[in-house]
Design a protein around this nucleic acid. Structure first.
Lengths: 190, 190
DNA sequence: AGGAGTGATGTCAGCAACTGACATCAAGGG
DNA sequence: CCCTTGATGTCAGTTGCTGACATCACTCCT
């Protein structure tokens, strides 16, 4: 990260990174499949957290709720790391290749979530959809968390995202007006 | 595509591709930023279709419905190309780098959709969420379309996906039982 | 007609990411 | 004390990709 920030991502060669770590370029590639991959360490831990949280969700939990719980369970990984996350995000924004990698990590989390749901007996189009929708909420919530001037919690943004998603999908299921559970803020199209 | 299928993706060098097209490697890179990019031609057209469809959605259309209409509008691009799409998908499945590229294309479509929604007056968390959720539905529907043994329409799968998403998100918004609009098939957790 | 500009292509040299094959070396176990 | 094993280094080679410059055709202007 320091190297990338000092000299920029592509003007930092793998040899540079390896040298900084006291290693050879070759050895670097034994630990990381990619130059990009250095920025994605610890993603396995999150992955695992996701899976176990869904697995251990109480019987009768809705698929989407199980996924939501898993996203919630990832909060500790981000807590107190907002600055670091922001710096990282800046790199992603500046380099498409890194964004690509991030996206495939998220996608693999989605498919892991879907599979875990299936193991819980959720049938197919539902499992994948719950997983993908969950990840969609995560993406938006995470980004908003990073940018939030009021610096509200990651958890808070998750919650808001889910709420909003529910509002969005509910809006035309039936033409009859729904009574809002809480007094609703201004939303989308009036 | 033929080259990739005959000799495999990574044993096909850019020089090979260029030669097959009667060009130089250098010239190839003037048309495509990447080796990967050859597989993603025409994505701009789809992109544009998406944007205009959302823009031209009738006043008062729900954000998610606007996105859904856009996904629907892409049907002609896939119609009668199931075999081709499948061959392509096989390549994606076999090569993570290609999947990465696909994902970033989808993500860029999502953000284009979000921006278009914003231009229609949709406020922020809603716009991004509708867009991302829509893309999530697309991903699942597209994949299921490719694999469907009954070879049902792409449009049909879209429709099913949306329906399922609505069912998923509606299920715990309020604890009171909802009357299902149609007699419901077996769904997720009983 | 002729020359100047313009855009598409080719040529060449070079860097950096990544890989395979083999050598080296330290730690631990029989 | 030697032998195995795993981690690291060395080296050479391939390929994706870029910058600088040359070439060529085509058009436009006088």
């Amino acid at each position: 990260m320091t190297l990338f920030q000092e000299h920029g991502y592509d003007r930092t060669t793998v040899e540079d990174i390896a040298a900084r770590a006291g290693l050879t370029e070759r050895t670097f590639f034994r630990y990381f499949t990619d130059k990009k991959e250095v920025l994605f360490g610890g993603s396995e831990v999150i992955h695992e957290c996701l899976v176990t949280t869904i697995t251990e969700a109480p019987q009768g939990t809705t698929p989407l709720d199980a996924v939501a719980a898993a996203l919630e369970a990832m909060a500790p990984f981000f807590k107190d790391r907002r600055d670091h996350s922001r710096a990282r995000q800046a790199l992603l924004v500046a380099h498409a290749e890194l964004r690509e990698r991030e996206l495939i990590k998220l996608a693999s989390m989605a498919s892991a979530a879907a599979e875990t749901l299936r193991k819980r007996g959720v049938t197919e189009p539902a499992a994948s959809l719950a997983a993908e929708a969950g990840i969609a909420v995560f993406k938006v919530a995470f980004e908003r968390w990073l940018e939030d001037p009021k610096a509200q919690d990651y958890s808070r943004h998750l919650q808001l995202g889910l709420e909003e998603l529910r509002a969005l999908t509910a809006s035309t299921e039936t033409k009859s007006p729904r009574p809002p559970a809480k007094p609703a803020r201004a939303r989308g199209k009036p």
